[in-house]
Nucleic acid binder design. Structure first.
Lengths: 205, 205
DNA sequence: GTCATCATGTAAGCCGTTACATGATTGC
DNA sequence: GCAATCATGTAACGGCTTACATGATGAC
């Protein structure tokens, strides 16, 4: 899980652990909030496995070839400053390797389907192709439908006289239906047309 | 967490582990799904601590004084059968003790506020008084408002050009607002009048 | 007699957390 | 020089899961 997050973020730009955590908060907002205590060991593990590699260490290491050409303008600008504001002696800037990209694809494909897993995958949807995206979306929809079904059965099954339990279940049903509708919209956008990948909504910002 | 669930269920009726798990599924539906591997150790722990006690073991032990008088009709009916359908040799039926009830109250009051914790507490709201319920509801609302705020900041903070990340955040905002409104309604019901405790909605089954 | 279900437990392991330890750099 | 923040890591522990082990009972 945390590995997916790390690789997904590093695929966009090279970062060191501390920065990574901040990006994680921003991109995955309420889904994540990893602690250093799990982040650093995970990075070490990924490095051992060859999924990431140290790309810059010490004050003036040069950035390597941008492996995917996918650096955002902002990240590129950041990196292009000669010395990132202050001398980073102990910083270890990590970058994703080809093996890491393979791993990322594998992690995206895995069947885990809970709120967190799905949200995280969705956040990195741009890194996979449309068939994969559709597969993930439909699997998620199926899970939600199952859940809906189960909750409905529980509500129907007498002996839920308790108003709080009832409120809980009704709210759960409602939320799940909302989620299903949302997934439906995402699927529609995905199958509809080109619209998403190269969105033409230059309007906001 | 699991202890709260166990005590909350046992407060309603005495059960053995296997039954307990089924009730857990039913009452907490999608929130829980504890496994035996954690349920049995938890029961043993609670017994050691004196929060629960074995109430019936072997084929024909008599049920003790119903400690709260709160046995539901169904459970009472079940228990009143001379021999519950078949000889339960190895069954250990647990009941909550006064110490356990104290512990339950403590667990309800604790500050954990995530989806699961809150849902679980809500499911056992009938076991606490109105002030406590209101405190929990308002704390939850405050957390949700924080979350909303944070997500909004993240959305506003440029560089979320990615349509998937954007979709994720917008959906999160929407869901959170729904949750807040729902909590609002629960609070209103709670402060409004007597309505909830002795609900007069005899309408549905 | 055999299979599904009921029923209880143990062991190993995963994934994460908190708390602790360390030290560099910058702003004041 | 001192505090705040940046930056990296280790150690201990927590809670839960899976897989394993065991055995009774009831249905057919």
């Amino acid at each position: 899980m945390i590995e997916l997050a790390i690789l997904g973020i590093l695929k966009e730009s090279n970062l060191h652990g501390y920065e990574l955590k901040k990006h994680l908060r921003k991109v995955l907002g309420p889904l994540s909030n990893v602690s250093f205590g799990s982040l650093y060991p995970a990075l070490a593990r990924l490095e051992r496995e060859g999924a990431v590699t140290i790309v810059e260490s010490g004050p003036d290491a040069a950035p390597p070839m941008p492996m995917t050409g996918s650096l955002t303008g902002e990240a590129a600008a950041f990196r292009s400053r000669r010395r990132p504001t202050r001398g980073p002696r102990n910083r270890k800037v990590y970058g994703i390797t080809p093996a890491g990209e393979t791993r990322l694809v594998e992690l995206m494909a895995d069947p885990a389907d809970d709120e967190r897993s799905f949200g995280m995958k969705l956040a990195f949807f741009r890194w996979c192709d449309r068939p994969t995206r559709l597969r993930l979306l439909e699997r998620r929809r199926a899970s939600l439908l199952d859940r809906l079904e189960e909750t409905r059965k529980a509500v129907a099954a007498r002996d839920q006289d308790d108003p709080y339990v009832r409120a809980l279940m009704e709210h759960d049903t409602e939320s799940t239906m909302n989620d299903i509708a949302w997934i439906g919209r995402l699927i529609a956008r995905e199958t509809g047309d080109e619209g998403l990948d190269k969105e033409t909504t230059g309007g906001h910002r």
